[in-house]
Design a binder for these strands. Structure first.
Length: 852
RNA sequence: GGGCGCGUAGCUCAGUGGGAGAGCGCUCGCUUCACACGCGAGAGGUCGCUGGUUCGAAACCAGCCGCGCCCACCA
């Protein structure tokens, strides 16, 4: 990190400049080694989080920035509470995404992965990773994330690969992993099978064709399909067994047009009599439903579409070799020529698309590796129902449980080159599965790799050194919380829980926090392809990391929210406010002051009480994962209490160099910085470095529990009354046209200002006069009246109008209150405290009215 | 088809049984010796609609209207 420009003095820096400060602070943190935790102690006393590993090719997006901010609040908070805290860092090899990137690069060079071969290709991807992998790590540092950067893991590093291989072999040995020819979601764009979770349904307008099939012994039937080309693979026609119309059809034989194949007419419950003609063509090779029906009835499976997205040889001439869409037209044309198209209609329906490549899924039968989930799911269900894993917000709990209850086999093999290659070897009819390659000649390794989510599922324990029983594993597993967006609840979270229980002997985390999704300003999802993305790095450059962190946390919620530039602005202002408030204090306090609460007046007791309350509230917000409340509460304290009132109240004493107020101010500042640090770490660390007597980094400060003995309801009531009165009087002044600087002579006729009358006069610009003549105006304040005496320059007409408005309001409120209290049912049934409060209120209103 | 959630000030959102809130925006005033990324004062809301429960509903219940998301193999 280059040495920054010579540090301007506090005196000159009237504006907080994050771009100057943040890189300097980030460098200090990294050099300090504070973020690294040597393993010791137990998971119960330590605090750990495993970062959701970003894709190695990725760059920081808004989701990373939000989740990074959330996790960093948690990690910094617990570190400052004195826990040994580790935030496990690393990246994911992200099989598909990374392979696609490098392939694009190759194609741009006029080459391809096939041209250079697997080995050279994988080398190329590793080079890519060395080059682009550090980018996103640097961006997390820019955000201020206090990860343990000394121990970065990668889902394809050597130790991690060992863990993956061991898990695979163990699961195979237990019989959970098996090979099957089964209907899979084939992604023609990728040239690979993908799992159910990587498929998304999209609404599509298609044409629904009705096609006549002749019956062998005379007559015909009519089937409907949006994919006429698949009829070449039909092996039956089905009707519902209860469908009276077709009872005598069952058992007869239809003839498949164009092909001539004899199709048995079968009866199956799946067929809906009311849909179309109630006669359904059965294509076990290319439709998941038909596949199941085919298995039930022992039907032949004919694959007419190949993995290359073209019609296979089985499709016959002239269709074999044609791309699917061309084949569709050709089949329709051929059927039309035979007069078999009985109808077409526009048809809107949902169709599976690949979440990875964006292409339409081609369901087909393929030989793949699967993982059975029946044994793994129940313990993972129990972990959540028993509360060993808590999910926040808890409406996601049921979503998780519903999915787990209906969990299906997981297709784990991918026809890719970048990833964990299956530890499976074939020789003729033999299959060998093992971490080490088999002895002997002639073995060939299965070319497929594992679904990236298989390796990600091991993340919380594989990163800590499993299968070795390491110190790190003993100290930090289970981790405390997993913070994530809900879109990978099944893909990742559920699988981590299953794998953690199966292999690491415990749940991988105690809490799952599901954060909101930040949408674009117009409510659409943020996405590069839609052009709706906002780059958090740009935002950090423009407004500072603290501002972005604050903004994201403040807009976070239990539901999806639109990106709010205003909240980021609020964060930027907070940083600037804190900086300038600190300048006031640091430039003003007496030399040699030691920080410590030394209350001498009611406002001192008040700010100490408010500080303790803010500390408790902030802590509670963090502990309950309510980051918006935490961030906004912090803002409210700094603006609404510390700066607007306390600093204004004590300025005269500060200028007088009163030692006690210096000590108290430094104490409040110190504690405020510590409280704010998890949310806005840079500005607080920078200010901390200017604090007299501050040693070391704020990030490493050990924070004590809030000192509840400083709570002070009496001081809060007294200063609360003062604040109300000042605001009332300022409002009055503004309304009646008092010049801003002018001192108005008044007589205070109100209770409860014994200790604060001087402050009231100063802040509302009044001159207090003990006696004097008749008032020329009256301003009601809590506890009584401020009588304005002759001599102040104001508009008497406006003053009278104000008084009369106030009377109208009071009359209305009194009427409402009286009505309420004269309602016998209210008095009888409402809680006594509520009724009592209503009576007090009425009394107060009447007093105020009388005073007027 | 099943499930979850949302509809509160011009905008983005808090508020879950006892007198409607924040930030931004808007209006007016202020070169007040920390901050004009500032200070002070204001305007602005039938809390989607209808019905119900309750002494009392923005909040709880039901229905309706509008919007979003997740899950699901109807050609």
């Amino acid at each position: 990190m280059p040495d920054p420009s010579p540090k301007a003095s506090l005196q000159e820096r009237t504006r907080y400049e994050p771009s100057e400060v943040e890189p300097r602070i980030a460098a200090r943190w990294l050099e300090s080694g504070l973020f690294h935790a040597e393993p010791a102690g137990t998971p119960e006393e330590n605090y750990s989080i495993a970062i959701p590993p970003p894709n190695v090719t990725g760059s920081l997006h808004m989701g990373h920035a939000l989740n990074g901010s959330i996790q960093d609040v948690l990690v910094r908070h617990h570190r400052m509470r004195g826990q040994r805290t580790k935030w496990v860092l690393g990246t994911d090899h992200a099989g598909i995404a990374t392979q696609t990137q490098v392939e694009k690069q190759l194609i741009a060079e006029g080459s391809s992965r096939e041209a250079i071969g697997r080995e050279a290709f994988v080398d190329r991807v590793w080079e890519w990773r060395q080059r682009y992998g550090p980018q996103i790590i640097g961006q997390f540092q820019r955000l201020g994330a206090s990860c343990d950067y000394q121990e970065e893991r990668f889902t394809l590093d050597e130790g991690y690969a060992q863990a993956v291989m061991k898990v695979f072999v163990d699961l195979y040995d237990k019989g959970y992993i098996y090979r099957d020819r089964y209907m899979v979601n084939w992604d023609p764009g990728l040239g690979s099978a993908i799992s159910d979770l990587e498929v998304e349904q999209r609404e599509v307008d298609d044409t629904l064709y009705s096609i006549d099939y002749d019956l062998e012994d005379g007559g015909k039937l009519t089937v409907s399909t949006v994919r006429p080309e698949t009829m070449l693979g039909d092996t039956a026609v089905a009707v519902n067994p209860d469908d009276e119309r077709y009872r005598d059809l069952v058992g007869r034989t239809a003839i498949l047009p164009l092909v001539g194949r004899r199709l048995p007419v079968i009866a199956d419950e799946y067929v809906k009599p009311e849909f179309g003609t109630g006669q359904l063509k059965i294509t076990p090779g290319h439709d998941p439903n038909d596949f199941e029906i085919g298995r039930r009835h022992g039907l032949e499976q004919v694959s007419v579409i190949g993995e290359d997205g073209r019609m296979a040889a089985e499709a016959g001439e002239p269709f074999a070799g044609l791309p699917v869409l061309e084949a569709r037209d050709a089949v329709v044309a051929a059927l039309e020529a035979e007069g078999r198209i009985a109808g077409r209609e526009e048809y809107r329906h949902e169709v599976p698309y690949s979440h990875r490549s964006g292409e339409r899924i081609e369901p087909l039968i393929s030989l793949q590796w699967f993982m059975a989930m029946e044994q793994l799911a129940p313990p993972a269900i129990d972990a959540v129902t028993s509360g060993r894993v808590r999910i926040t917000p808890d409406n996601h709990r049921r979503v998780y449980l519903d999915w787990m209850a209906r969990i299906r086999p997981w297709c784990i093999s991918r026809q890719l080159w970048w990833g964990h290659q299956l530890p499976i070897y074939y020789r003729r009819e033999e299959t060998y599965v093992g971490v080490e390659p088999p002895e002997g000649e002639g073995w060939e390794r299965d070319p497929d790799v594992l679904d990236m989510w298989f390796s990600s599922a091991l993340w919380p324990f594989a990163t800590l050194g499993w299968p070795q029983q390491t110190e790190a594993l003993r100290a930090f597993y289970p981790t405390d919380v997993l913070s994530t967006a809900r879109d990978i609840l099944f893909l990742w979270v559920a699988r981590m829980i299953m794998m953690g229980l199966e292999f690491a002997g415990d749940v991988p985390f105690r809490d799952v926090y599901v954060h909101s999704v930040i949408q674009a300003r117009d409510g659409r999802r943020m996405s590069k392809s839609l052009g709706t993305g906002i780059d958090p790095v740009d935002e950090i450059e423009a407004h500072g990391a603290d501002a972005v962190r604050f903004g994201l946390l403040a807009m976070s919620s239990t539901q999806d929210v639109r990106y709010s530039a205003e909240k980021v602005g609020q964060g930027q202002q907070l940083a600037n406010k804190l900086w300038n408030a600190s300048r006031l204090v640091l430039l003003g306090v007496a030399d040699g002051t030691r920080a410590g609460p030394q209350p001498r007046s009611v406002e001192d007791r008040w700010i100490l009480a408010r500080l303790v309350d803010a500390q408790a509230q902030t802590r509670d917000a963090i502990d309950s994962y309510d980051f918006a409340r935490g961030a906004l509460g912090l803002y409210a304290f700094v603006y609404g209490e510390l700066c607007d009132w306390y600093l204004e109240l004590v300025k005269p004493r500060l200028y007088d160099q009163e030692p006690e107020v210096s000590a108290t101010l430094l104490h409040v500042l110190r504690d405020t910085l510590a409280m704010a640090h998890p949310f806005i770490p840079f500005v607080t660390e920078e200010i901390w470095s200017h604090l007299p007597g501050a040693e070391g980094l704020l990030a490493g400060l050990r924070v004590e529990d809030p000192d509840l003995s400083l709570r002070d309801p009496a001081a809060e009531a007294e200063v609360g009354r003062l604040i109300d009165a000042v605001q009332t009087l300022r409002g009055w002044r503004d309304l009646v046209g008092c010049r801003p600087g002018e001192l108005v002579p008044v007589r205070l006729r109100a209770e409860g200002y014994e200790a604060t009358a001087g402050q009231l006069a100063r802040l509302a610009r009044l001159t207090l006069i003990a006696d004097g003549g008749n008032p020329v105006a009256k301003v009601p304040v809590a506890g009584g009246m401020v009588e304005v005496l002759a001599g102040g320059g104001f508009d008497p007409v406006e003053a009278e109008r104000r008084r009369s408005d106030r009377r109208t309001t009071l009359d209305a409120e009194i009427a409402r209150s009286q009505a309420k209290l004269s309602n016998q049912r209210f008095v009888d049934r409402a809680p006594a405290a509520v009724v009592e409060a209503e009576r007090d209120k009425l009394a107060r209103l009447r007093t105020d009215l009388e005073a007027l």
